[in-house]
């Protein structure tokens, strides 16, 4: 079982690496960081903050696009091009495929985030802020964890829906996930029972991505505590496990076209 999951994860990572789109995005982020350095020159005294802000925000944004794009396309491509026919005629369970695919994508994201983080760190060294170059890594970890959720959502949708719709829905979930906590607070303040019920529902069903927002604080040199990171890690683990379990239940019943 683990043997299959590992083989599928490794093959997924290989596919992503050989897919040139990924390289382009990484290069793009490095370019953006270069721009940040240039901007930093203009805003005298605040270079390090600006670089951190732009670099980490770009990392998140590009990470989300990579997660959605790769998460949706790699899974639906296997269904559409019928490469799954030969996979599932071998002693490979559908659950093993989903988990293997997911882990391969997470590994791809990890490498990406690491490359991007290194880019931002180097840019910070360049503007003379060695302390920020080190302290951003806690926030980088949070970004990576957020991306693993986005990927799990993307795989869930592509297990039963079309690629375009899956991408759109995943993007919406990401947006809502960032606002769900504030919306719930807002609804609680309003005191309307219906609003409380609806936003409460959204709050508990959608991932609460406000836990992962740390870029602004990171620009001030702050770093999430180990306890906080551990808590968010646990939250991510539970949420992803539930998402994958739902995906597997749906995918097991699917007739492959």
């Amino acid at each position: 079982m683990f043997r299959n999951i590992l083989a599928i994860a490794r093959n997924t990572f290989r596919e992503a690496v050989r897919d040139r789109v990924l390289y382009n995005l990484v290069v793009f982020v490095l370019l953006i960081t270069g721009c940040a350095v240039f901007l930093g020159d203009l805003t005298a005294g605040n270079e390090d903050r600006t670089v951190t802000n732009i670099g980490l925000s770009a990392m998140l944004l590009f990470g989300v696009f990579i997660s959605i794009f790769v998460g949706v396309s790699l899974v639906s491509k296997e269904i559409e091009k019928k490469t799954l026919y030969t996979i599932f005629s071998k002693p490979v369970g559908r659950g093993q495929f989903i988990v293997g695919k997911y882990l391969g994508l997470c590994l791809t994201l990890l490498v990406n985030v690491a490359v991007m983080g290194t880019g931002v760190s180097l840019a910070l060294f360049y503007v003379g802020s060695g302390s920020l170059a080190a302290s951003i890594w806690g926030t980088v970890t949070l970004i990576f964890l957020e991306l693993t959720i986005v990927t799990a959502v993307a795989i869930l949708f592509s297990s039963f829906s079309t690629p375009a719709l899956s991408a759109l829905l995943t993007f919406l979930v990401w947006i809502i996930g960032h606002f769900s906590a504030s919306l719930k607070d807002l609804a609680d303040g309003l005191g309307s029972a219906a609003a409380q019920w609806i936003f409460g529902f959204i709050y508990y069903v959608f991932p609460n991505l406000s836990h992962f927002e740390f870029v602004t604080l990171a620009a001030r040199g702050e770093s999430p505590s180990a306890g906080y990171l551990g808590g968010v890690f646990l939250y991510t683990l539970i949420f992803n496990t539930i998402l994958l379990a739902i995906t597997i239940v749906i995918f097991r019943r699917r007739n492959l076209k």
């Binding site: 596919e15 897919d19 019928k82 490469t83 026919y85 005629s89």
Partner: peptide, 20 residues
């Protein structure tokens, strides 16, 4: 699924991973 370890299958118009 375990019995699949003893069978082989070639689909109609087989298609495999482009990049391999």
């Amino acid at each position: 699924v375990e019995v699949h370890s003893r069978i082989g299958y070639c689909p109609e118009n087989p298609y495999f991973y482009d990049y391999l």
